[in-house]
Amino acid sequence: MNTRARVLVTVAAALLLGGVAVGYTTLSAAPEPDVVSGVVRGSRLQVLGNGRLSVVSRTDPSGPREVTEERCDRAYAAGGTIACLRPVGALKAGGLSVLDSSRRELTTLPLTGFPNRARVSASGRMVAWTVFVDGHSYAANGFSTSTGILDVRTGDLVRSLEEFSVGGAAAQAADRNFWGVTFTADDNRFYATMSTGGHRYLVEGDFAARTVKALVDNVECPSLSPDGKRIAYKAAVNGDPRQGWRLSTMDLGTGTVTPLAETRSVDDQPAWLDDHTVAYGMQRSDGVNDVWAVPADATGSPTLLVPEANSPAPL
């Protein structure tokens, strides 16, 4: 066993022990109210409202909002698990917090870098994140990202996908960056973006086997549809991120690419609201974000879903 592997096992063991300890305190504490059962009724959407974890109604996004005290720079939720990338504070580094649906913290993981993407598998078992380590923009030269995956059930932790062996088109590439993980229903396979040599590949990964395989070029921040048949993603215009990104979908069976009706540049990992609609954040010039939605089949037009919010996740 090499040093890196030993460190990983130690971290995983520490996470497991942490999980046990947290479970014990949770059982012995008085039950807390479940915030998501508040005034927001019916079909709900988790969003961030200027960095605060919030819950809004999907059918009445202009109705009351539950605004929690949890601060995240990026968040996602699925299957009763909330992934929250904590802001980098003045005195402490940022990191990943995994919360249950009542916002009880199950585990934390310190991370170095600026929060950027977060995703949870549909079952709530697998959590992935991306932070910027150097540089700050996917449109710039010379940035570097760090993307990891945590199995919340077993504590199995991969701090960086750069540890995985690479097959397919870019097997020999030395300089690799990963971002934007999305999980399949088996809680093992996933899709992500791998950048190398000026190309941004869609890769398919196998968490247990610690492998990724490059599939096609010019796919960033994939998001797998609930039925597992398509990804929504951002495609660099003319293959050049400096020209912006077109929100698109790709049929994984046929490879058919469909640019969606949103023609503004979208720099986000989209979220599927159902098998026909994707949601994404757009920033105004004053720094306020809005969540928009657009049909996943090139029809229709973008609609404002939740004003003054980003990081959408259907609950």
Binding site: G38, V39, S54, G63, V67, E308
Partner: peptide
């Protein structure tokens, strides 16, 4: 009576 609720869009 709803200390965590925001009514900004009301």
């Amino acid at each position: 009576s709803a200390t965590g609720t925001n009514y900004g869009a009301s």
